[in-house]
Nucleic acid binder design. Structure first.
Lengths: 127, 127
DNA sequence: GCTTGACCTTCCCGCTACAGGAAGGATTAC
DNA sequence: GTAATCCTTCCTGTAGCGGGAAGGTCAAGC
Protein backbone atom coordinates (compact mmCIF):
# COMPACT_ATOMS: atom_id res chain seq x y z
CA UNK A 1 0.00 0.00 0.00
CA UNK A 2 1.37 3.40 -0.93
CA UNK A 3 1.62 6.37 1.39
CA UNK A 4 -1.72 7.96 0.60
CA UNK A 5 -3.53 4.69 1.20
CA UNK A 6 -1.69 4.17 4.45
CA UNK A 7 -2.43 7.72 5.54
CA UNK A 8 -6.10 7.29 4.78
CA UNK A 9 -6.24 3.97 6.59
CA UNK A 10 -4.59 5.44 9.67
CA UNK A 11 -6.55 8.68 9.52
CA UNK A 12 -3.40 10.77 9.28
CA UNK A 13 -2.16 13.37 6.79
CA UNK A 14 0.34 12.12 4.24
CA UNK A 15 2.84 14.68 5.49
CA UNK A 16 2.60 13.21 8.96
CA UNK A 17 3.15 9.66 7.77
CA UNK A 18 6.20 10.78 5.82
CA UNK A 19 7.45 12.64 8.88
CA UNK A 20 7.08 9.54 11.06
CA UNK A 21 9.09 7.61 8.49
CA UNK A 22 11.77 10.31 8.38
CA UNK A 23 12.32 10.29 12.14
CA UNK A 24 12.26 6.50 12.25
CA UNK A 25 9.08 6.27 14.30
CA UNK A 26 7.06 4.21 11.83
CA UNK A 27 9.00 3.14 8.80
CA UNK A 28 7.39 1.59 5.73
CA UNK A 29 7.84 -2.14 5.30
CA UNK A 30 9.67 -1.60 2.02
CA UNK A 31 10.27 0.66 -0.95
CA UNK A 32 9.01 -0.08 -4.45
CA UNK A 33 11.41 -0.13 -7.38
CA UNK A 34 10.52 3.49 -8.02
CA UNK A 35 11.35 4.45 -4.44
CA UNK A 36 7.76 4.69 -3.23
CA UNK A 37 7.14 3.89 0.43
CA UNK A 38 5.29 0.60 0.78
CA UNK A 39 3.21 -0.11 3.90
CA UNK A 40 2.13 -3.58 4.96
CA UNK A 41 -0.32 -4.64 7.68
CA UNK A 42 2.19 -4.40 10.50
CA UNK A 43 3.36 -0.90 9.60
CA UNK A 44 -0.26 0.13 9.14
CA UNK A 45 -1.09 -1.05 12.62
CA UNK A 46 1.86 0.89 13.98
CA UNK A 47 0.68 4.01 12.19
CA UNK A 48 -2.80 3.71 13.66
CA UNK A 49 -1.33 3.01 17.08
CA UNK A 50 0.77 6.14 16.95
CA UNK A 51 -2.17 8.13 15.61
CA UNK A 52 -4.27 7.17 18.60
CA UNK A 53 -1.44 7.77 21.04
CA UNK A 54 -0.87 11.21 19.55
CA UNK A 55 -4.59 11.80 19.98
CA UNK A 56 -4.03 11.42 23.72
CA UNK A 57 -1.30 14.02 23.47
CA UNK A 58 1.60 11.63 24.00
CA UNK A 59 4.78 13.22 22.66
CA UNK A 60 6.69 11.62 19.82
CA UNK A 61 9.23 10.37 22.35
CA UNK A 62 6.48 8.82 24.45
CA UNK A 63 4.94 7.29 21.33
CA UNK A 64 8.28 5.77 20.52
CA UNK A 65 8.40 4.13 23.93
CA UNK A 66 4.80 2.98 23.74
CA UNK A 67 5.39 1.56 20.29
CA UNK A 68 8.40 -0.32 21.63
CA UNK A 69 6.26 -1.82 24.38
CA UNK A 70 3.44 -2.54 21.92
CA UNK A 71 5.82 -4.71 19.93
CA UNK A 72 7.45 -6.28 22.95
CA UNK A 73 5.75 -9.52 23.94
CA UNK A 74 7.79 -9.54 27.15
CA UNK A 75 6.67 -6.11 28.27
CA UNK A 76 5.29 -5.49 31.71
CA UNK A 77 2.08 -3.51 31.99
CA UNK A 78 3.85 -1.51 34.70
CA UNK A 79 6.06 0.11 32.06
CA UNK A 80 3.05 1.09 30.00
CA UNK A 81 1.24 2.37 33.04
CA UNK A 82 4.20 4.52 34.01
CA UNK A 83 4.25 6.32 30.66
CA UNK A 84 0.49 6.78 30.69
CA UNK A 85 0.61 8.04 34.25
CA UNK A 86 3.25 10.56 33.28
CA UNK A 87 1.01 11.84 30.51
CA UNK A 88 -1.92 11.92 32.90
CA UNK A 89 0.15 14.00 35.32
CA UNK A 90 0.97 16.42 32.49
CA UNK A 91 -2.71 16.73 31.69
CA UNK A 92 -3.63 17.35 35.31
CA UNK A 93 -0.91 19.97 35.68
CA UNK A 94 -2.17 21.74 32.57
CA UNK A 95 -5.72 21.55 33.88
CA UNK A 96 -4.75 23.20 37.15
CA UNK A 97 -2.84 25.90 35.34
CA UNK A 98 -5.77 26.58 33.03
CA UNK A 99 -8.22 26.58 35.90
CA UNK A 100 -6.33 29.38 37.64
CA UNK A 101 -6.06 31.37 34.43
CA UNK A 102 -9.71 30.77 33.64
CA UNK A 103 -10.96 31.94 37.01
CA UNK A 104 -8.85 35.08 37.07
CA UNK A 105 -9.60 36.02 33.51
CA UNK A 106 -13.30 35.20 33.78
CA UNK A 107 -13.47 37.44 36.83
CA UNK A 108 -11.83 40.31 34.94
CA UNK A 109 -13.96 39.85 31.82
CA UNK A 110 -17.04 39.78 33.99
CA UNK A 111 -16.02 43.00 35.72
CA UNK A 112 -15.46 44.79 32.41
CA UNK A 113 -18.63 46.45 31.23
CA UNK A 114 -17.50 46.38 27.61
CA UNK A 115 -18.90 49.70 26.46
CA UNK A 116 -17.45 52.71 24.65
CA UNK A 117 -15.66 54.13 27.67
CA UNK A 118 -11.94 53.50 28.16
CA UNK A 119 -12.14 52.41 31.80
CA UNK A 120 -11.34 48.74 31.99
CA UNK A 121 -10.43 46.47 34.89
CA UNK A 122 -8.61 44.13 32.50
CA UNK A 123 -6.22 46.86 31.40
CA UNK A 124 -5.93 48.00 35.01
CA UNK A 125 -4.98 44.53 36.12
CA UNK A 126 -2.32 44.17 33.44
CA UNK A 127 -0.85 47.61 34.17
CA UNK B 1 18.32 51.41 32.37
CA UNK B 2 20.08 48.65 30.47
CA UNK B 3 18.51 45.42 29.32
CA UNK B 4 19.35 43.30 32.34
CA UNK B 5 17.92 45.92 34.69
CA UNK B 6 14.77 46.15 32.58
CA UNK B 7 14.44 42.38 32.44
CA UNK B 8 14.80 42.12 36.20
CA UNK B 9 12.28 44.90 36.77
CA UNK B 10 9.75 43.24 34.47
CA UNK B 11 10.48 39.75 35.75
CA UNK B 12 11.43 38.52 32.29
CA UNK B 13 14.52 36.79 30.88
CA UNK B 14 16.93 39.06 29.01
CA UNK B 15 16.47 36.94 25.90
CA UNK B 16 12.75 37.58 26.01
CA UNK B 17 13.17 41.34 26.34
CA UNK B 18 15.57 41.34 23.40
CA UNK B 19 13.10 39.24 21.42
CA UNK B 20 10.26 41.67 22.13
CA UNK B 21 12.48 44.49 20.90
CA UNK B 22 13.41 42.54 17.76
CA UNK B 23 9.81 41.94 16.77
CA UNK B 24 8.83 45.51 17.56
CA UNK B 25 6.55 44.59 20.45
CA UNK B 26 8.32 46.61 23.13
CA UNK B 27 11.19 48.67 21.85
CA UNK B 28 13.67 50.39 24.12
CA UNK B 29 13.31 54.15 24.50
CA UNK B 30 16.76 54.71 23.03
CA UNK B 31 20.19 53.26 22.37
CA UNK B 32 23.33 54.40 24.18
CA UNK B 33 26.37 55.59 22.22
CA UNK B 34 27.73 52.05 22.43
CA UNK B 35 24.52 50.61 20.99
CA UNK B 36 23.12 49.32 24.28
CA UNK B 37 19.33 49.22 24.59
CA UNK B 38 18.10 51.88 26.99
CA UNK B 39 14.75 51.47 28.76
CA UNK B 40 12.84 54.32 30.40
CA UNK B 41 9.78 54.24 32.64
CA UNK B 42 7.28 54.00 29.80
CA UNK B 43 9.05 51.12 28.07
CA UNK B 44 9.44 49.38 31.42
CA UNK B 45 5.71 49.63 32.03
CA UNK B 46 5.06 48.16 28.59
CA UNK B 47 7.41 45.29 29.32
CA UNK B 48 5.63 44.50 32.58
CA UNK B 49 2.28 44.80 30.87
CA UNK B 50 3.28 42.31 28.20
CA UNK B 51 4.79 40.03 30.81
CA UNK B 52 1.51 39.86 32.69
CA UNK B 53 -0.51 39.44 29.50
CA UNK B 54 1.76 36.56 28.44
CA UNK B 55 1.18 35.11 31.87
CA UNK B 56 -2.48 34.83 30.92
CA UNK B 57 -1.44 33.02 27.79
CA UNK B 58 -2.27 35.83 25.38
CA UNK B 59 -0.36 35.32 22.13
CA UNK B 60 2.20 37.86 20.98
CA UNK B 61 -0.35 39.12 18.45
CA UNK B 62 -2.97 39.54 21.16
CA UNK B 63 -0.40 41.27 23.37
CA UNK B 64 0.31 43.66 20.53
CA UNK B 65 -3.37 44.56 20.33
CA UNK B 66 -3.72 44.86 24.08
CA UNK B 67 -0.64 47.05 24.23
CA UNK B 68 -2.12 49.27 21.55
CA UNK B 69 -5.30 49.65 23.56
CA UNK B 70 -3.29 50.18 26.74
CA UNK B 71 -1.65 53.19 25.14
CA UNK B 72 -4.82 54.46 23.50
CA UNK B 73 -6.64 56.95 25.69
CA UNK B 74 -9.60 56.78 23.31
CA UNK B 75 -10.01 53.03 23.57
CA UNK B 76 -13.32 51.45 24.35
CA UNK B 77 -13.42 48.78 27.03
CA UNK B 78 -15.45 46.72 24.56
CA UNK B 79 -12.34 46.21 22.42
CA UNK B 80 -10.36 45.00 25.39
CA UNK B 81 -13.17 42.76 26.52
CA UNK B 82 -13.38 41.18 23.10
CA UNK B 83 -9.73 40.16 23.07
CA UNK B 84 -9.95 38.88 26.63
CA UNK B 85 -13.13 36.96 25.81
CA UNK B 86 -11.39 35.36 22.85
CA UNK B 87 -8.59 34.20 25.11
CA UNK B 88 -11.13 32.96 27.63
CA UNK B 89 -12.84 30.96 24.90
CA UNK B 90 -9.48 29.43 23.95
CA UNK B 91 -8.92 28.47 27.57
CA UNK B 92 -12.35 26.91 27.87
CA UNK B 93 -11.91 24.96 24.65
CA UNK B 94 -8.60 23.63 25.89
CA UNK B 95 -10.17 22.73 29.20
CA UNK B 96 -12.90 20.71 27.52
CA UNK B 97 -10.38 18.94 25.34
CA UNK B 98 -8.20 18.10 28.34
CA UNK B 99 -11.17 16.95 30.36
CA UNK B 100 -12.08 14.37 27.73
CA UNK B 101 -8.48 13.18 27.46
CA UNK B 102 -8.15 13.10 31.22
CA UNK B 103 -11.26 11.01 31.76
CA UNK B 104 -10.44 8.49 29.07
CA UNK B 105 -6.81 8.15 30.06
CA UNK B 106 -7.54 8.05 33.78
CA UNK B 107 -10.00 5.25 33.12
CA UNK B 108 -7.39 3.29 31.20
CA UNK B 109 -4.65 3.87 33.73
CA UNK B 110 -7.00 2.81 36.47
CA UNK B 111 -7.85 -0.38 34.61
CA UNK B 112 -4.19 -1.28 34.11
CA UNK B 113 -2.92 -3.33 37.00
CA UNK B 114 0.67 -2.29 36.37
CA UNK B 115 2.42 -5.52 37.20
CA UNK B 116 4.98 -7.69 35.44
CA UNK B 117 2.51 -9.26 33.03
CA UNK B 118 2.17 -7.92 29.47
CA UNK B 119 -1.63 -7.67 29.42
CA UNK B 120 -2.56 -4.03 29.37
CA UNK B 121 -5.84 -2.26 28.59
CA UNK B 122 -3.90 0.88 27.59
CA UNK B 123 -2.04 -0.96 24.86
CA UNK B 124 -5.26 -2.73 23.90
CA UNK B 125 -7.06 0.56 23.52
CA UNK B 126 -4.33 2.04 21.36
CA UNK B 127 -4.15 -1.03 19.15
C1' DG C 1 47.51 52.28 32.59
C1' DC C 2 46.32 47.55 32.44
C1' DT C 3 43.84 43.62 33.34
C1' DT C 4 39.87 41.02 34.65
C1' DG C 5 35.29 39.95 34.71
C1' DA C 6 30.77 41.08 33.76
C1' DC C 7 28.18 43.27 30.82
C1' DC C 8 26.38 44.29 26.01
C1' DT C 9 25.79 43.51 20.80
C1' DT C 10 24.50 40.68 16.53
C1' DC C 11 23.94 36.31 14.39
C1' DC C 12 22.85 31.60 13.87
C1' DC C 13 21.06 27.10 15.35
C1' DG C 14 17.76 24.37 18.04
C1' DC C 15 13.33 23.02 19.96
C1' DT C 16 7.80 20.49 18.63
C1' DA C 17 5.34 18.27 15.15
C1' DC C 18 4.40 18.97 11.43
C1' DA C 19 2.36 22.17 6.78
C1' DG C 20 3.19 24.31 2.38
C1' DG C 21 5.31 24.31 -1.72
C1' DA C 22 8.89 23.73 -5.48
C1' DA C 23 11.25 20.71 -8.76
C1' DG C 24 11.29 16.55 -10.90
C1' DG C 25 10.24 11.46 -11.69
C1' DA C 26 6.38 7.53 -11.82
C1' DT C 27 1.99 5.83 -12.65
C1' DT C 28 -2.53 5.65 -14.40
C1' DA C 29 -6.63 6.81 -17.23
C1' DC C 30 -8.32 7.96 -21.47
C1' DG D 1 0.58 10.15 -26.44
C1' DT D 2 -0.72 13.07 -23.06
C1' DA D 3 -2.75 14.95 -19.07
C1' DA D 4 -3.76 14.34 -14.38
C1' DT D 5 -2.51 12.52 -10.36
C1' DC D 6 0.43 10.42 -7.77
C1' DC D 7 5.22 9.92 -5.62
C1' DT D 8 10.04 11.54 -4.19
C1' DT D 9 13.45 14.84 -1.84
C1' DC D 10 14.53 19.29 -0.13
C1' DC D 11 13.78 23.85 1.73
C1' DT D 12 11.18 27.13 4.37
C1' DG D 13 7.99 28.48 7.99
C1' DT D 14 5.37 28.13 12.28
C1' DA D 15 5.61 30.37 18.31
C1' DG D 16 8.34 32.04 21.49
C1' DC D 17 11.94 32.03 22.83
C1' DG D 18 16.93 29.42 24.81
C1' DG D 19 21.82 28.40 24.11
C1' DG D 20 25.96 29.74 22.60
C1' DA D 21 29.69 31.89 19.61
C1' DA D 22 32.34 35.99 18.29
C1' DG D 23 33.37 40.37 19.40
C1' DG D 24 32.78 45.26 21.50
C1' DT D 25 32.16 47.94 26.21
C1' DC D 26 32.33 49.24 30.88
C1' DA D 27 33.51 49.48 35.90
C1' DA D 28 36.55 47.95 39.48
C1' DG D 29 40.83 46.88 41.37
C1' DC D 30 45.89 47.01 41.34
Amino acid sequence: MNISGAAKAAGLPVKTVRYYADIGLVEPAARTAAGYRDYDDASLRKLSFVGRARGFGFSIAQCRELLGLYQDADRSSAEVKEIASARLAEIRAKQCELQVLHDELAHLVDACCGDARPDCPIIDYLS
